[in-house]
Design a protein around this nucleic acid. Structure first.
Lengths: 250, 250
DNA sequence: CGACACCTTGACCAACGTCAAATCCGGTGG
DNA sequence: CCACCGGATTTGACGTTGGTCAAGGTGTCG
């Protein structure tokens, strides 16, 4: 059983003002996009705004799945642990992403803030009661889950069959595409996660991630000014890496 | 564009009798379990029974997702391909399992029969029209998708962090548990897929799968009489392998 | 300015992949 | 019934990618 963190969000204690949905900055990215003003009003009554500090655990594998969340600001890593401590990061979440899809009684993974986090919290029981009257929301939830499933299948291909170089290149492209979806620039990329997180996501070690980034830097496909920020200098080259062959002497 | 097989199921051409739902042998395993007699009657009107020969492609990545299926008899492998031909098998389906969850317009993977197959085919457009009136079916579909997502996350742990020995042991345990779910014995295990399929599922090569099975055989954890059938002689030992350490001198 | 966590680099190693050669087994035809 | 064919599987020898271990380097925050 993983250690619980004291900074655990308790939506009954830590909650910001309700009723901000109208001005929510991720409205059109999130599940709420499926709703009109009237429906949104019904949803607004059950949600709470939750803040979580960086490094805190948001949800814990095996715990009762009492809440679902929408990420409003910050980013999250999802991971599972083997009994001996080996870790697999199964995904990263950014603003607009949905957290806590678990149709079982308990969460199936851990979620930890990798940046200060603002979440929109839906108590599960209340949400389920509402779901019957909001078919569009249920449909959207199904779509969201199916989308996550597709992403998981892509990740299986990466983990089962790609080389270290292809994995890191795929990772950078994924981050870039998700940044664009959030209306951020595709290129100076913010990398909020540590090398260890990246390694645990890609099924590698920190050393291999580091060496591979160095190779990409030497090949002039990427560049780094600041720590935690990577510039993609040659997106075409990166894509070629993932889809075609190797670095071919670069 | 992948080559189309001539044996592709066309539910408008190859269809068996309708209206067998009442006696369907996988009724309580499948999505239909969520429905009562009256609701089932409405579903019965849109379904068709489809037969597919072993080795035939059922659905093709990138093709229009016109149909959903329920596996009635036989088994299926799902896989994705990289441009250079590397393959990742993302899952195996057995009777009762659902095939074709794709809320997009096109399928995201290929599905191929590994045994003669009997499928129950739902035309997607008709099913969607029905969904509005069958909330329990929609809920069940969401549950099914969430379940697949959880399985995919477990597979990520396997592919990213487990050793060859742990992967093969996990695979055998998974097959055994799914056999039990279908009311089959846990131990003389039918293995309908080839070593290549297993390797592509576990992110290994056929040689490594073969060598690992030999190690398990030598360790007296499994035994084989017939080709395509494996007896689990020491389930405790197998579980210990996956959860704890190595073979410890066995 | 110093502690500390994170990142990078190097030398070496091992698990798993590659290549190649048996061996097994089921199906087919005589 | 038996010999033979061909794909699947097993086994062996060897190579390579990425892991391990260890030693710096670097940026950040008190």
């Amino acid at each position: 059983m993983p250690t619980l963190q004291s900074a655990r969000p308790n939506p009954n204690a830590i909650r910001g003002p309700r009723g901000q949905c109208g001005t929510c900055e991720i409205r059109e990215l999130s599940v709420c996009a499926a709703l009109d003003e009237v429906e949104l009003e019904r949803l607004r009554l059950i949600i709470a705004s939750v803040h979580v500090q960086a490094g805190a655990t948001v949800i814990c594998e095996g715990e009762a799945a009492d809440n679902l969340f929408n990420v409003v600001r910050g980013s999250v890593k999802l991971y599972k642990l083997l009994p001996d401590g080996r870790r697999q990061v199964t995904g990263f979440l950014f603003p607009g992403d949905f957290l806590g899809i678990a149709l079982n009684e308990t969460y199936a993974y851990n979620a930890e803030a990798i940046q200060p986090l603002q979440l929109c919290c839906f108590p599960r029981r209340k949400l389920e009661a509402l779901l019957a009257g909001l078919p569009r929301l249920e449909r959207r939830l199904l779509g969201e889950t199916a989308h996550e499933l597709a992403a998981a299948q892509d990740q299986m291909v990466l983990l089962g069959r790609k080389t270290a170089l292809e994995r890191v290149a795929s990772f950078l492209i994924m981050l870039s595409e998700r940044a664009v979806k959030r209306r951020r620039p595709a290129s100076p990329l913010d990398i909020p996660m540590t090398r260890t997180d990246i390694a645990d996501y890609l099924g590698l070690t920190t050393e291999t991630v580091s060496r591979t980034l160095t190779r990409l830097r030497r090949g002039r496909l990427i560049a780094t000014q600041t720590r935690g920020r990577i510039e993609i200098s040659d997106m075409e080259g990166l894509r070629a890496l993932v889809e075609g062959g190797g670095l071919e002497g670069r």
